[in-house]
Design a protein around this nucleic acid. Structure first.
Lengths: 229, 229
DNA sequence: AAGTGGTCTAGACCACCTT
DNA sequence: AGGTGGTCTAGACCACTTG
């Protein structure tokens, strides 16, 4: 039996091989349905997946075209520190470094009155990631002390689903962060920042400072199958 | 009329409000179809989107549950330098720095015999990004000189769709890259690396070196609507 | 004006997994 | 064993946009 995956993969193969070159128009859904001997809805789902991945572009009346500059669209799963450490085979531990961490101006502008803290995620008792965390005080239930458990999981439970803005950069560590990580202050490292929004209001912001040499990796596979190598 | 988006958004609101707490089981598709007065396929599409975003987990017979640790899954669109510069309002230009750039061992291990080059992407005639590029020589049509046009678009046309592995890190610039960017050698900057694979064979690899202060930003919105703030 | 994709319906069968 | 999600069908109507 022919499923929507078969059709999606067949079209993907045509694109890869060049049979459907960038800019080319695909046969219409009706034509593809006849060719593959399936209902139009099945074709629609197959082509819809290719469109969601940015490989083709669909427009009513104009039809479906292979994109000339395919969006290299990758999905990242942002893991909590504990999950990432344990996936790498390390034993996770946690330490609160500063329960009353200052709130910089740019964060205050976003969050309004906020509480700051600095904590450390360790792998096999070695520092692995320093977390600056700021939590807005509006409309937020009384926050725990976070001296035993990290703030991330608690926040996820309080506000399970939110919008987020991520940014990644190379930035120089301040004194507190460097001391926590055990590196020289001013060392430039990889920083991942996340701001979390609910209904247009910022709720919490976090900056995650990694050790020198850290890499964030992600994979992208059009069509779903993972890279072999 | 009730569409699948309405149902998706209604369920999302229940999850956000806590009416459907983490771990809770959603009503079955049949029940939701009755509640909203739509066909089961419509409910299925709505819940399917939430599942694709990692907000709920579906299992046959067991039903659909709200994930306890929601995957914060974000989609990145990796832009070509020219597109990113022009989107930021700059005038794009290109310069080839070294048509015979050395191939480091780790790249050679992946690509086999390869050609290397170093080039520069400029915004308003100021260096913006240095690109180290290596192209495998197997099964690749004769490569142009790349003295006028960047290699990225040419490769996209040759091999429109490929798997890719991305990585991001903070790394120290070498002499050639630093000279191209006009910064001090050894400066640690944000680096984005991409390896491109086709059918398990590496085709090309690239390392993109940015200026100090560069940030890569991306947004994530469960359900599709963008963050308001 | 006409043809394309976008969506929905009502029904059906199946694979899978929990009970 | 039975209920759940997963998928497909055949048909329909609609929105859009191009020619």
């Amino acid at each position: 039996m022919t499923g929507f995956r078969d059709i999606r993969d067949a079209l993907l193969a045509r694109i890869r091989s060049g049979a459907l070159a960038p800019g080319a128009v695909l046969p219409s859904e009706v034509e593809l349905a006849e060719e593959f001997g399936v209902a139009r809805a099945t074709v629609s789902r197959a082509v819809g997946e290719l469109a969601a991945e940015g490989l083709v572009e669909r427009r009513r009346r104009a039809g479906t075209r292979v994109r000339r500059a395919p969006a290299r669209r990758a999905q990242i799963d942002i893991l909590q520190a504990q999950a990432e450490i344990e996936r790498a085979g390390g034993a996770y531990s946690y330490r609160l470094l500063d329960p009353d961490y200052p709130v910089p101006a740019d964060i205050a502008a976003r969050l309004g009155p906020a509480r700051g803290l600095l904590c450390l995620h360790l792998s096999d008792a070695r520092p692995w990631q320093a977390e600056e965390r700021w939590i807005g005080l509006d409309d937020m239930p009384a926050t725990p002390v976070f001296d035993q458990r990290p703030p991330g999981p608690w926040l996820v439970e309080q506000v399970p689903l939110t919008d987020a803005v991520f940014s990644f950069e190379a930035a120089a560590t301040g004194h507190a962060v460097a001391a926590g990580l055990g590196i020289r202050p001013g060392t430039t490292v990889f920083v991942a920042e996340r701001s979390t929004w609910l209904d247009g209001r910022a709720i919490t912001a976090t900056r995650l400072w990694h050790l020198p040499g850290y890499r964030m990796e992600l994979r992208h596979s059009p069509g779903g199958a993972g890279p072999t190598g």
